[in-house]
């Protein structure tokens, strides 16, 4: 039986969160509904676009954190 698949389900599918038992229904729904298929492609394009943005902390911040993690053990000893 095909469950009624909505854009919410497709968004969950795109982020790998759709429950396994609903995935066949979602694929079937996209095959028969170009709008849902288009939405799925759009979600994936947006994800690829968002992936282009990431920033790292300054190495000094990382050093401070690492030093603090060592200090903890020094104090514990």
């Amino acid at each position: 039986m095909t469950k009624n698949i909505t854009k919410q389900h497709i968004l969950l599918l795109s982020y790998g969160e759709l429950s396994t038992d609903l995935i066949p229904s979602a694929i079937e729904a996209m095959d028969s509904d170009p709008e849902l298929k288009g939405y799925y492609n759009q979600c994936n394009r947006m994800k690829a676009e968002l992936d282009r943005f990431s920033v790292d902390p300054h190495p000094t911040s990382v050093s401070i954190v690492n030093e603090h993690s060592h200090d903890g053990h020094t104090e514990a000893v």
């Binding site: 920033v55 790292d56 902390p57 990382v62 954190v65 993690s69």
Partner: peptide, 14 residues
């Protein structure tokens, strides 16, 4: 802890 920081620093900082 350094491994945890290295693994998650970009995700957390971003």
């Amino acid at each position: 802890m350094e491994t945890l920081v290295r693994r998650h620093k970009t995700r957390i900082y971003t």
